[in-house]
Design a protein around this nucleic acid. Sequence first.
DNA 1: GAATAAAGTTAAGCTTGCTTAAATAAAAAA
DNA 2: TTTTTTATTTAAGCAAGCTTAACTTTATTC
Lengths: 221, 221
Amino acid sequence: MSTISKENYLKTIFNNSIDSGSNATATKLANDLSVSTAAITDMAKKLSEEGLVTYEKYRGMELTSSGEKAALKIIRRHRLWELFLKEVLEMSWSEVHDEAEKLEHHTSEFLIDKIDMYLNYPDFDPHGHPIPRKNGTIPKTPNVMPLSQGEKGMFCEFVRVNDKDSELIDYLAKVGFILNSKFEVVDKLAFDKSLSIKFNNKILSLSKKITESIFIRLVKN
Amino acid sequence: MSTISKENYLKTIFNNSIDSGSNATATKLANDLSVSTAAITDMAKKLSEEGLVTYEKYRGMELTSSGEKAALKIIRRHRLWELFLKEVLEMSWSEVHDEAEKLEHHTSEFLIDKIDMYLNYPDFDPHGHPIPRKNGTIPKTPNVMPLSQGEKGMFCEFVRVNDKDSELIDYLAKVGFILNSKFEVVDKLAFDKSLSIKFNNKILSLSKKITESIFIRLVKN
DNA sequence: GAATAAAGTTAAGCTTGCTTAAATAAAAAA
DNA sequence: TTTTTTATTTAAGCAAGCTTAACTTTATTC
């Protein structure tokens, strides 16, 4: 049986394997889901009994194809809700994540398809993440890299931001640095790994922690 | 602490006291909520400890003013979602109830106010029920009576329908008998208490059970 | 490779919101 | 008023999803 809790586990396991390229570790999942590692072990057994993950003691979990399918369904709901709340109901960039986090578990396939249609089958959510399609495919994403890997002189486009830290997103919106902004890296300090970027003729200095949450693609001059 | 279950109890207690004029009985609540009467007694204790209802053994429950306030908040969410799903996302009259039933528990006050604004602060939901306002007041409703009390020769307007029976609502929509339709009662059979009504030059025969779910107001010829 | 640290697992127990079955109170009928 | 029926409550127990504490396995360091 699918429950809210299980949906959240599947989603988190999926995102972890995307980020790390390997199996999701119990400690990381426990941290992301704000539960104890004991809870992770508990759920690992249940999900594996249902055939949604493969699980071997001390070896972490991995989504099966049916687990991945289930994860993508939830992620699709989340990202479509985020875009709908922002575009239609004019909620701000930073507010939509938490609201979508709740709605995603209580939306029928019928309704989410209506929302998809209303938005004209969009490919990306307000933070630049691809929206899984009804058929399970995922829109092709540009080659992105964290801004922290940027170097002086690079010309870039801001294409994605982690959606969980609403304070950061609020700050970026306030200073006018929004998705799809084009900019140049004008400085990089070895001292604290902070970057200075230039966009709209403004100079903005961003700490290492911030540049790790911002993803960019290179553009020709 | 407010939970989904408690919100559903409060809503159901509220609707019951509106319908019956007196305290909600355990049997009726158990039936409406699809739980055992033992569960009702259980929850009665919890809600009463939280000051949301007054409860005396064997005497049923009654909402306190803070309980009523909480109930109206949920009902407001439910009815605004129903209207939004119908008007904006073009879901049908009969589909919106079940979907709203889930969304109502997962919608922040901020979001529901956005929806309210988007719909231009409406007074009634798609089934003719008044939508409680943010300040807790309820739009004035016309004097309604069940169609089952109609008599031959009356001129009426269809102003409300119970929203729970989606099959009935689908049927009414199919035959074109929708909210705000004007009609005349042209016959009433003593045999089975069924009514014949005339609207748009069509004659429609409705069983007693159906006429009990439809609410009307009298109009001058 | 042994010692230590870190990560993961097991066991026991908690809360919520239910259930069924038995007991009791209230209401209706005789 | 007594009996019978109906409504309500109590008691014991269950499943889900957690917790903490103790323990075991794996990884790291010297």
